[in-house]
Computed example of a mutant assay.
Amino acid sequence: MTDIFASFPVEYELNPHRLHERLTAAAEREGLLDVAYRTLDSPVGPLLLAATERGLVKVAFDRQDHDAVLAALAEAISPRILRAPARLETVTRQLDEYFTAGRQTFDVPLDFRLARGFRLSVLEHLPEIGYGHTESYSQVAAAAGSPKAVRAVGTACALNPLPVVVPCHRVVRSDGSYGQYAGGEEAKRVLLTLEAA
C-alpha cells in the first residue's frame, strides 16, 4: 500500500479544507474509504447521509444523534468512515429537488445491508407507494407477503435505515393518523404536507 500522506506539499498544512479534500480523494483512490458521509440541511432538520461503494446506506435525522449513528455504522460496516461529500453529490441534489417539490422519486443506488428478512421486504415495497399517497400498516403487510404482520411493518418502518429516500413516512395508521416516525411526528407531517401540495 502506498503512503497517502507522502505526496502532500507543505502548503496543505496551512489549508485544512484543501488537505481534507486531498486526503479524502487519496483514501477513495486507495480503497480506504468504506463509508462516506455528509450532512444536509433540510425542512425536517439536519440529515446525515452515508454511502458505501454499493450506494446510500443510511439517512438519519438529527434526533437520532449523528455521532451515535456514525459509531453504529463503524461497528456494523467498517471503521473506515470519512466525511466525503463528493460520493453523496447525486443523492444530495435529488433530496434538494425533493424538498423543493421538483422531484417525486429517487434514482440513486441503495445499499440495504442494514435490513434483512421481512424488514427488507417491507422496505422494497415502500417506493411503490406513490408520491402524495399513503398506505396503512396492514396494506403494507399484505403487499410484503405477510398480511398479519402489521406490528412487524411498524418495526420495519421505525428501523428503516433510509427514511425519506425509502418513504416510510407514507405509511400511516388505518384511521389515517401518522403513527410513529424516526424523525418525529412533525417531520412526518412536513413530508406528507409537502407531497400533498
Rank of each mutant, 00 (worst) to 15 (best):
P109L: 00
P16A: 13
Q94P: 14
C168Y: 00
G55P: 13
R93S: 02
N15Y: 05
N15D: 15
A60K: 08
L162E: 05
G102Q: 00
V166G: 01
V166Q: 00
D65E: 13
V165N: 00
S177Q: 07
E128W: 07
S146C: 06
V10H: 02
L73M: 04
P16Q: 13
R113F: 00
T100W: 09
P161M: 09
I77C: 02
A50M: 08
A144S: 10
A26L: 08
Y98R: 03
R54W: 06
P127C: 11
V44H: 04
T100N: 15
V190N: 01
A141R: 08
S138R: 10
E13R: 13
P85Q: 06
D65Y: 03
L114G: 04
L194C: 01
K188Y: 05
A84Y: 01
V140I: 15
L88G: 01
M1I: 01
Q64K: 00
Q139D: 08
D3Y: 02
L159Q: 15
L88M: 11
L126I: 03
A51C: 04
Q104K: 13
T2R: 14
A26H: 03
M1T: 05
A101Q: 11
G183C: 14
Y98N: 04
K148A: 00
V190D: 01
P163F: 05
H17A: 12
H133F: 14
P46D: 15
R80Y: 10
V10K: 03
G184D: 10
V91C: 06
S136K: 10
G183Q: 12
R87Q: 15
E135K: 10
T105W: 01
T100A: 15
T155A: 10
R80C: 11
S121L: 13
F112T: 01
R151I: 13
K58T: 13
P167N: 10
E128F: 14
Y131I: 02
T92Y: 11
V140E: 03
D62E: 11
A149S: 15
H66W: 01
L48M: 09
T100F: 11
A144G: 03
Q139M: 08
R63N: 15
A76L: 14
G145S: 10
Y12R: 07
S146W: 05
G31D: 12
T100S: 15
T52S: 07
L33Y: 10
I77M: 03
Y98H: 05
G183V: 14
